[in-house]
Amino acid sequence: MTETLLDRHDAVLFDLDGTVYHGTRPIPGAAEAIAHVRERGGNVRFVTNNAAKSPEAVAEHLVRVGVAAQPAEVSTSAQAAAALLRERLPAGAVVLVVGTASLEAEVRSVGLRPTRQYDPEISAVVQGHSPDTCWSDLAEACLAVRAGAWWVACNLDTTLPAERGQLPGNGSMVAALRAATDCEPVVAGKPEAPLLRTAARSSGATSALVVGDRLDTDIAGAVAAGYRSLVVLTGVATAQRLLAAEPGERPDYLAADLTVLTREVSVAELEIGPQPGWRVTVEGAVATVENTAADGDRLGLLRHLCHVAWSSPVSSVRAADPLAEKALASWDLG
């Protein structure tokens, strides 16, 4: 009997932009894949580093792009930051908020008292993205951090995608406060573990699977949290980036997109490792690819190459035959 990913994992933690949608455009097959996870009895969580939007707003956006979602299924870095504050601070402690009203509401929901101005009673500072953050907000936070307040950043994303291009993200504002205080924040969002662990706990998962398109946030977060991960190639991950991945950002499974969750594909086929149809040998730092079966799968080749590159120093890849050359060219390799 074929063991699939949904047989092995009882909850799937989905990244959003680049995995489920591109801004306002749904990624083909994503909605059907998420529905299939639910039909199979798996729990679903939508995990986002975005601390500016409430779970209700995120769920509404998902519904607009055709993905059924409830606010309770959404886990944000604002929620993860609030959970960290609750674990460390006594009830009623004062927390200076740099971010949106949604972040402020999360702080209040865990029994803490949000404020926007410095006061000697402040126990912590929590910082999340807001397009309205200005110098005066950072100044209040600076005073609090320099006075010894515990500093939590929702995420360190230096940029965020917009229709006009990449714009400054929360990490850019965090960098300004870091420069002014010589302090480092505790980080709640990906690639750190708290956000994914909060999402997994809320789903009751015993074996969560993290799915995303970014190695440096989604997959690195999964590694930090101790969860298995699937990288999909619908966002920023590329073949070259995968081959160069550091140990802390290497996925367990690789697929083209989320539709793999709807098919009876074996775990063994999706795992990074040797794949049928290909032989890869390494001499020096050069990997040579040879096709050994006419139906050799190009995704299988990429999984095989990742296995080789992650265990041996590989600086270049070359083909030994026309079929291998064609497959490598499809990944912009060779």
Results as ranks from 00 to 15, higher is better:
A57D: 14
D137F: 15
V152F: 07
V110F: 12
G92I: 13
A287E: 04
A224Q: 09
A144P: 05
V63Q: 11
E121I: 03
R279Y: 04
P71V: 13
V94I: 04
S312T: 14
D15V: 07
P131A: 09
P71G: 08
E140K: 03
A180F: 06
Q127R: 01
V186P: 02
A31Q: 05
T217G: 15
Y21I: 08
Q79F: 11
L103A: 04
G204F: 09
L254M: 04
A35S: 11
K190S: 05
V12L: 06
T262R: 11
A255V: 03
Y118V: 06
A239E: 00
T181V: 12
W151E: 03
E39V: 10
A327F: 06
H129G: 09
P247I: 10
D218E: 10
A245H: 01
F14S: 06
A105P: 01
G169Q: 10
I122C: 09
R250F: 06
R116L: 13
T259C: 13
P274V: 15
T4C: 07
D132M: 13
A101V: 11
A255Q: 06
A188D: 10
R164Q: 12
K326Y: 05
A244V: 04
V265G: 05
E283L: 14
H9W: 09
L195W: 03
L301A: 03
V174H: 05
E3Q: 12
L196W: 10
W310S: 02
A33F: 04
E246M: 15
A256W: 11
P322Q: 14
L215Y: 05
S207P: 14
E264R: 04
D218F: 02
A205S: 15
V58N: 00
V282I: 09
S203F: 01
E325T: 07
A82V: 12
V231M: 12
C142D: 01
D252C: 09
T19Q: 04
E325D: 13
K53N: 09
T198L: 11
E249G: 04
L13I: 07
I219K: 03
V67S: 05
N170I: 02
A239V: 08
Q240P: 00
D216H: 09
T158D: 06
Q117F: 06
A51R: 00
L62R: 08
A52D: 00
G248D: 15
G334A: 13
V308P: 03
R303I: 12
V232A: 02
M1W: 12
S312M: 15
P313L: 14
R318Q: 14
S136L: 10
G92L: 08
V231S: 07
S75W: 03
P120R: 14
T281L: 10
S229K: 05
L196R: 04
E184F: 11
A83I: 02
E325I: 01
S203P: 02
G221F: 11
V47E: 01
V286T: 15
G29A: 06
L328Q: 01
L62T: 07
R214S: 10
S109I: 05
L112T: 10
D252T: 13
A244N: 08
L302P: 00
V187R: 01
G212H: 02
S203N: 01
A144S: 07
R178V: 15
V126S: 02
C183Q: 14
L89C: 04
V267P: 01
A200Y: 11
G277W: 02
V74C: 05
E104F: 10
S102A: 15
T133C: 11
A208P: 15
L89E: 03
G165R: 09
